[in-house]
Nucleic acid binder design. Structure first.
Lengths: 253, 253
DNA sequence: ACTTGACCTTGACGCTACGTCAACATCTAA
DNA sequence: TTAGATGTTGACGTAGCGTCAAGGTCAAGT
């Protein structure tokens, strides 16, 4: 009335190693163990195995499967959540495919993978007044000397990061997600980390409270100043950035 | 003229751990090492790092990136190959999404994740005559007793595997890929493994040569017999199966 | 009874690309 | 001088098994 480990492996279309693994992690125990340590499985175990393989085929992780099997009422919930994850992955893939195609074209045309001056139209010095007014002349002097001291490569790198952040912000805002969603907050985290790269600002050397004020203040400036707002998709996108940064600052700084 | 590990990490938007990792695997060595063991990176290293991060962002693996950096002429080729992989992943995701949605509906409606009689319309005994004629009365007797000795669960499992194989074959055939392609051969491999689950046939207990003849013979039967052919999408699909099995048998059995 | 050969067991390493301690050395600014 | 930031080299963890390694067990044939 029961089968050896190879038997069910073949019946269910999997391997004995997998069954031993499921035993190890407690996902599917053999229904009986021989005096010699051999694992034997009954019909009930086979049904469970089928379910496991079905769910695994849908892409669910083993811990989730375990939980679903414990309480089948959760199945619909777990699957719905998983569906969301799958859709996000699909989006991510679509974006990557577009990027790769674009890069292929660039490589075919230009030759070099990445020219040094990929990023133009970014002039750090144009914000001199604002920085002085808000954070003091001293801050700007330090910040500016830091910027002028950079090599072309470093400047390019800096531009790339800021541009990437801008793109991600715009994508997030137009995706219709909430500013306090995990995705938006992840970008906010990167944004703040990026800010800490500017010496002389509260973000780089300040205590938690100062950084909080600095970040929220910046968010407001992004909305108010169209020169900044355009980096984030205009006033609307900048508003999203401001809201997201505000939430992030309050929760983490 | 060079930066510490934290400096470039911040400049490039990554972490020092990542840079140490790249050093360990030889992907990006520091341009200079201090007497104290500290890593220092030059502008050239920064440019390399930028390229690495760009390619990584496109989803390429580190070994591939390493190779592309060694010979930039390969970039377009590597990217094109990667693009294919991305598209396949996209397809897989699309199928998974469809399956998950379908399963959600089934769970909502039916309650149970998998009822025992999910698979109907499959009658093992209907092929009695063919089996006897081709492989001898003895073979059928053994095969049939084996089948009748199965529990409902086991029968269901068997049906599921055969049905799954049928679906995969149809998908492969309609995808327009070649019978000797890696994907088709992978299904063929599974098909043969599935066949070995039938005791009394050459596939289960035979020597290599017998199995080869058996498998190729089966392939022909799938085409000739509409009752089998319909499991593989009709005569055309069965033809694809036959060709794939033939290639597999010749190369592996 | 003895030998094969198939099948079983428990470890334990490998894979991707790092994150995350741990324990300890070094540099920097007050 | 000393605290705090930053650096170093291990080494473990991650998801889900594949893949040896080394050694017991079992069924069948001689």
């Amino acid at each position: 009335m029961d089968w050896s480990i190879q038997d069910i492996a073949r019946i269910a279309g999997t391997t004995s190693r997998t069954l031993r693994h499921y035993d190890d992690i407690g996902l599917l125990k053999p229904s009986r163990t021989g005096h010699n340590g051999y694992r034997y499985y009954s019909q009930a175990a086979l049904v469970q195995l089928q379910r496991i393989l079905l769910l695994r085929g849908l892409g669910l992780g083993l811990p989730v499967i375990s939980q679903v099997l414990d309480d089948e009422a959760d199945a619909a919930k777990a699957l719905t959540g998983h569906l969301e994850w799958l859709k996000q992955e699909q989006d991510r893939l679509a974006r990557q495919i577009a990027s790769v195609m674009q890069t292929i074209e660039a490589v075919k045309g230009g030759g070099e993978i990445m020219a040094e001056d990929m990023f133009n139209g970014f002039d750090h010095t144009q914000y001199k007044d604002e920085v002085e007014e808000r954070w003091g002349k001293d801050a700007y002097a330090k910040g500016d000397s830091w910027w002028r001291g950079m090599g072309a490569d470093e400047k390019a790198a800096w531009k790339q990061r800021s541009q990437q952040l801008g793109e991600d912000w715009i994508a997030a805002a137009s995706a219709g997600i909430a500013p306090d969603s995990a995705e938006a907050q992840a970008i906010a985290k990167r944004h703040v980390e990026w800010l800490t790269g500017i010496p002389g600002t509260p973000a780089a050397d300040g205590k938690s409270g100062d950084v909080k004020a600095y970040v929220t203040g910046l968010g407001e400036m992004y909305v108010a100043d169209p020169r900044f707002a355009k980096n984030y998709g205009g006033a609307e996108g900048a508003g999203f950035v401001r809201d997201a940064l505000k939430v992030y600052a309050e929760q983490n700084l």
